[in-house]
């Protein structure tokens, strides 16, 4: 396999050097665009909030304290996301990781989406069949999937705000059972589907699942919620290290 990730080359559908295309300037422009949009949105929201606050008996100090509390509480979770994001940089390239995993989406959905998309093209995520064209297809699928969440939000929020009780009360029992089951099934079948490929795939899957399970038990035992935040990143990095040593055996 030829990984010349440092030298950007022209697009080549069959090349597995996906970073040449994944780090292209236009993708960076789009990623920075999403960053700036969130900055602008936050500024507009803060201004609107400070304007409304005094009228409902809220002091500017209370608003400032809220902003600061939100900022401080986000430090841990943000760094935990950073850790996961860095692990995926060689799969999706920096701009796509920033937008899809860091912002709009999350590592679980986006990795699953990319794997499902690659499958429809008869390829695999990250392997020798993961060419520039497959990366393009995967990014298109991830972005369209993420767009559906945003479109659902844009369509449903005004309806819910109007107090559309029919929508609000769509059988809560179904809402409790079906999405959760669908989500677990999607991740489960994608993970189990990797197992027949080689014993190293088995090591990768089981070590990651095992580390996660141990961390979850510890987090509940010692009542330290931050362990849950960091668990995903720790499990991914540690099991990648274990897998790396397994390939050396």
């Amino acid at each position: 396999m030829n990984i010349s990730y440092q030298l950007p080359m022209a697009a080549d559908s069959n090349s597995t050097d996906i970073l040449a295309i994944a780090n292209s300037p236009f993708l960076w422009v789009c990623a920075i665009g999403v960053f700036l949009v969130i900055v602008v949105q936050s500024v507009i929201y803060m201004k609107a909030a400070s304007k409304a606050a005094p009228h409902i008996g809220m002091t500017p100090q209370e608003l400032k304290t809220s902003f600061r509390a939100g900022a401080i509480s986000a430090i841990g979770p943000s760094l935990a996301v950073v850790m996961v994001a860095v692990a995926l940089l060689t799969i999706f390239g920096t701009p796509a990781v920033l937008v899809r995993i860091g912002l709009i989406g999350s590592v679980s959905y986006e990795t699953a989406a990319a794997a499902i998309a690659a499958k429809t093209a008869g390829a695999e995520l990250g392997g020798p069949t993961y060419t520039q064209a497959v990366f393009g297809l995967a990014l298109a699928a991830m972005s369209l999937g993420g767009a559906m969440w945003m479109i659902a939000t844009l369509v449903l929020t005004p309806l819910l705000k109007k107090g559309d009780s029919a929508l609000r009360k769509v059988n809560p029992a179904i809402m409790m059972v079906v999405p959760g089951a669908a989500m677990v099934a999607a991740f489960m079948v994608l993970g189990i589907g990797e197992l027949p490929k080689s014993w190293i795939h088995v090591v990768a899957f089981l070590s990651s699942a095992g580390i996660m399970a141990i961390l979850m038990v510890i987090a509940n035992k010692v009542k330290r919620p931050w362990i849950k935040e960091w668990a995903l990143g720790i499990a991914i990095i540690l099991s990648l290290a274990i897998t790396y040593f397994a390939t050396r055996l």
Partner: peptide, 21 residues
């Protein structure tokens, strides 16, 4: 190392994510 990450990222991510879910 990059090659290992690329080859085994899917089972690694899914293992942890499925337990988390």
């Amino acid at each position: 190392i990059i090659q290992t990450v690329q080859l085994y990222i899917l089972p690694t991510v899914m293992g942890a994510v499925v337990v988390q879910a």
